[in-house]
Design a protein around this nucleic acid. Structure first.
Lengths: 217, 217
DNA sequence: TAGATTGTTAATCGATTAACAATC
DNA sequence: TAGATTGTTAATCGATTAACAATC
């Protein structure tokens, strides 16, 4: 359980509810039951009710939830209104992909500067965001009060980059580099671990193979 | 617990151990203790021992683990030797990023064809991998016995693409599109959920803010 | 031998699920 | 009212951690 009484798992499911609810045809006054949401997202219905109860007061017995209220409460809880400014380090393929990917603006994330050490890029801009030399990152973060850093540099450069971010006052690092980073207490490192996901996929295949012809369960 | 007696969490940690062990200077006969690994990766030492015991016979009291044995056992368990051929659908920024990202070949993944519906791309190739029209994906997967599909198409196209993959006999889908996908039993959908990660980051910031000036914990 | 370190068994913790009470 | 649906309290399940036994 995190501070504030909401579990990590619940928190991670909230954006999924929101995306689903927003994908529904926006009829005025439209309602939906927890069971319908659960069926659409392959979740338990009690779990859906518990998750929603944590962020919304909306549910009405016999009727369900007013979709528009739920969307409003989820967006408010997740802070999709308030913009979090972020910097990104490492303007390679992955960095560029993230900048163009689905508009993080929808999620309240605003990438305001990107940093790299390839001289050729300096002074240029990507999607209207300036590209600056990494040496200036700490100073930039401090003076602009940036609190989120996104790391898409190679593994070998990641810890150094993270340290520079921490010195600049950054409190949350989204790490795409394939290494474990250490950071002082109070700084959250959220790792996007591609290798972990891949491990699940390939283990599943191995099991399915060996499990045949019996049910793969 | 998955089939085969290893928990999902353990499985997800294994690649992290492997990456860490490989990052060590490769001295012949080098050993390492569970406590040292735990300290380096911010894990509990009992957890490390339990995880390693699930995949390796290597540990010796008073001495620790022989790094080279551990690397060998982890690679074997994770199937990094045996190549899993995969197709990727959606040659946008993210698709390109994944193809160039850190060489998935190291993880036993081999992207052998990519699919898109932008006419301009047809017949061309990316990193030596041919770009084909999506209409041919099902047939291609079936005839080439592909079992892994990577989805980097826009949300609106994702379910249709996944269905085409399933018809082609694919058994594991790595989904980067921001939607929940449904798939028949026996087909694993592993979602890379960027919005979930962002939710953790921004919640952490919100808490840190409100928690001040007290300790953020 | 004594001590460091592994591996296992038992206890704790947290999250999910089931049963039920509340209510529109 | 009766029935559908929410929300909560209790039970279950799984993973982590603590205590301890084994061993080089």
């Amino acid at each position: 359980m995190l501070t504030g009484g909401i579990s990590k798992q619940t928190l991670q499911r909230l954006p999924t509810y929101l995306t689903y609810l927003k994908s529904l045809a926006p009829e005025k006054g439209r309602t939906i039951s927890a069971s319908a949401i659960a069926a659409a997202l392959d979740l338990g219905e009690v779990q859906v009710r518990k998750d929603l109860a944590a962020v919304s007061v909306a549910g009405k017995p016999k009727i369900g939830y007013l979709v528009s209220d739920l969307v409003r409460d989820l967006e408010h809880f997740l802070g999709y209104g308030t913009c979090n400014r972020a910097v990104l380090a490492g303007v390679g393929n992955l960095g560029l992909a993230l900048m163009s990917y689905g508009g993080f603006a929808d999620y309240g994330l605003d990438i305001v500067a990107v940093f790299d050490n390839k001289g050729a890029l300096m002074g240029s801009s990507v999607d209207g965001v300036p590209v600056l030399p990494v040496e200036r990152m700490t100073e930039y973060c401090r003076s602009e009060h940036i609190r989120i850093g996104i790391l898409t540099v190679p593994a070998a450069a990641a810890q150094g980059c993270a340290d520079a971010m921490v010195r600049g006052g950054i409190k949350a690092i989204w790490n795409f580099a394939p290494v474990h980073l250490s950071a002082p207490p109070g700084v959250l490192v959220q790792r996007e671990n591609m290798a972990s996901s891949l491990a699940l996929l390939s283990y599943h295949l191995k099991q399915a193979e060996q499990g045949l012809p019996g049910e793969a369960k």
